Simulated scan of single mutants.
Amino acid sequence: MSEITFYTNPMSRGRIARWMLEEVGAPYTEKVIQYGPDMKGTYLEINPMGKVPAIVHGEQVVTECAAICAYLADAFPDAGLAPAVDRRGAYYRWLFFAAGPVEQAVTNKSMQFTVADPQKQGMLGYGNFELTQDTLAKAVSGDGYVAGPEFTAADVYVGAQVSWGVQFGTMDKKPEFIAYAQRVTDRDAYRRATEKDDALVAAQA
């Protein structure tokens, strides 16, 4: 298939998608979209939500970081970032747990939105922040990765969530989180991606 076009901004979740692109080693052309009119202009043809990241690969348009991670793992199987189909239970479980309950729980906590009534908590999908955080901490405990002994695309997404959460204080600095974040970011692809995005930030300063 054709080269990937990567729409991003270094001050966004585009960092997750770039990390994944570096992991699979696929050639890509980046298009930096600035916040404001640029993101709400012709870019809406790519993503009607007017947010980054997005990738275009041939005729395929993929938005949402978890979806981009899963898509790239499948599109570039030689990178070995997705388990065999009959072993993808934990892979899908934790990839989408982070995209759903974790994302919602962290965002609501950051905005100081809480629901105290235990019965109403069941309507939230994630229950409450503490339950969600403790569940994730258990999933990343040990010395392996979230879907088993091998690093996968799920670790890119989950790892980014945990790393940012610990760094910016939106998640507790649990020992499990700190150790897992160190494990998943100690990779050449992560360092390459970070250097590229940090250079873009510096250039825009």
Score class of each variant (00 low, 15 high):
M1I: 04
I4T: 07
F6N: 09
N9M: 09
M11D: 13
M11G: 13
R15T: 13
R15V: 06
I16H: 05
A17C: 00
R18E: 06
R18N: 11
W19M: 04
M20G: 07
E22T: 02
G25C: 03
A26F: 01
Y28P: 00
E30M: 03
E30Q: 07
I33T: 08
Q34A: 12
Q34W: 01
G36D: 00
P37N: 14
P37E: 04
P37A: 10
K40D: 03
Y43H: 04
L44Q: 12
L44T: 14
N47H: 11
N47E: 10
P48N: 06
G50Q: 09
A54G: 08
V56N: 10
H57E: 07
E59D: 15
T63V: 15
C65M: 13
A66N: 05
A66S: 12
C69H: 03
A70E: 15
L72R: 00
L72Y: 01
F76P: 02
D78G: 10
L81F: 04
L81R: 12
A82P: 03
V85F: 09
R87Y: 02
R87D: 15
R88E: 12
G89R: 01
Y92K: 08
F97C: 11
A99K: 07
P101C: 01
V102L: 15
Q104Y: 07
T107K: 14
N108I: 02
S110T: 13
F113N: 06
T114W: 03
Q119M: 02
Q119F: 14
K120M: 01
N128K: 05
N128H: 11
L131Q: 15
K138W: 06
S141H: 06
D143F: 02
G144E: 14
F151Y: 14
F151R: 15
T152L: 06
A153F: 07
A153K: 03
A154R: 00
V156T: 12
V156K: 13
Y157P: 10
V162E: 05
S163W: 00
Q167Y: 09
F168L: 09
G169D: 01
D172A: 13
K173M: 10
A179V: 05
R183S: 05
V184D: 03
V184A: 07
R187D: 08
D188I: 13
A189F: 00
Y190N: 06
T194A: 09
T194Q: 11
Q204A: 15
A205M: 11
